[in-house]
């Protein structure tokens, strides 16, 4: 059924569409600008860029990818994202499974004990001292261990698990399946939608995390992509200093500029997110809607 729109409705529509389009442009344009800047000819780009790239040059990318810190940072970021997410999903979902069992001894106490960690925060320095005491300084495990049992994810998964029909677990029990088997073959597969959601949350969180790197990891081999970007931002001339001999450095300085370097690294950092993000958006939305329903 189509209802004919009144004049007021059409004015309202115009108003709403205009604002939405403007806001969309404000959200997207900075990304677009950085991308077109990064593929422009660095020397011409200095004159200013607005809608289209000026010239075309992949020279900055080529030079950047030749330095070993970008490649290694990519590997570290991918590794922490992959292993961190895997561990978080495994631990948080298994713990959620444990606390959904009504027969568990001290169930409420244990659940509260874990959930309270959402609200208490010891602070920067105590965290720093403890991580150091655990020998996680300059250690890859620092990136993946501390977030493995995540209270917020546990609430989401537990809420979801409680909505599953009890009969499945009961019948498996009668057939003689043990707890690990029931978890692995029945409960976990049924939780796929919520696992996908927290998986996506965790991936984005891991990819964007850098404070742990900043405070506790100085080793060059373990720098994350975000940190490398931050360092380049603060040391515009770092690149030219890095490449060994001076003749080489002069040649590079002639073809690329500090701004073009910044723009290229930014693209390298956000591109993975921008590529997967539109496909994952529905999981985010599902997650926040479930998050609104507290556990």
């Amino acid at each position: 059924m189509r209802i004919k729109k009144s004049k007021g409705d059409r004015i309202g529509d115009f108003f709403i569409y205009t604002i939405c389009i403007l806001f969309m442009i404000v959200c997207i344009y900075p990304f677009y600008y950085v991308i077109i800047y990064s593929i422009s000819d660095p020397a011409q780009a200095l004159k200013g860029i607005f809608l289209l790239p000026r010239g075309f040059s992949m020279e900055t990318y080529r030079q950047l990818l030749r330095t070993n810190d970008i490649g290694s940072a990519y590997m570290v970021s991918i590794a922490r994202t992959f292993f961190g997410t895997l561990l978080t999903i495994a631990c948080s979902s298994f713990f959620a499974y444990l606390v959904t069992n009504q027969k568990m001894y001290f169930r409420k106490v244990i659940y509260r004990f874990v959930i309270i960690t959402m609200y208490i925060n010891a602070g920067l320095i105590p965290w720093y001292m403890v991580m150091k005491a655990y020998h996680l300084q300059n250690n890859f495990l620092l990136y993946i261990l501390p977030g493995a049992v995540n209270a917020y994810y546990i609430v989401l998964i537990k809420t979801y698990m409680e909505s599953l029909p009890k009969e499945l677990e009961e019948s498996a029990k009668i057939d003689g399946a043990g707890m690990f088997r029931i978890y692995g073959q029945i409960i976990f597969p049924l939780c796929k939608p919520i696992i996908a959601t927290i998986g996506v949350f965790s991936v984005v969180g891991q990819w964007n995390q850098w404070t742990d790197n900043y405070f506790l990891v100085t080793s060059a081999k373990l720098q994350t992509l975000q940190m490398v970007l931050y360092n380049y931002l603060n040391q515009a001339n770092r690149f030219t200093n890095m490449s060994g001999n001076s003749a080489d450095a002069a040649a590079i300085a002639a073809t690329i500029t500090p701004t073009s370097i910044k723009m290229c690294i930014t693209v390298l950092v956000v591109l993975p997110i921008m590529c997967v993000y539109p496909f994952l958006q529905r999981y985010f939305v599902k997650g926040i809607m479930m998050g609104a329903v507290k556990g």
């Binding site: 568990m104 001894y105 169930r107 010891a122 105590p126 965290w127 403890v130 049992v149 707890m179």
Partner: peptide
């Protein structure tokens, strides 16, 4: 008993949470 088993399996997680979220509080 099932409840005891679940409780025992959860102990490592409790220790883990204690180590990463509660121990830093002693820093106060």
């Amino acid at each position: 008993p099932e409840g005891k088993k679940f409780f025992l399996v959860s102990i490592p997680f409790v220790i883990f949470v204690f180590a990463f979220a509660y121990i830093p509080l002693f820093g106060w």
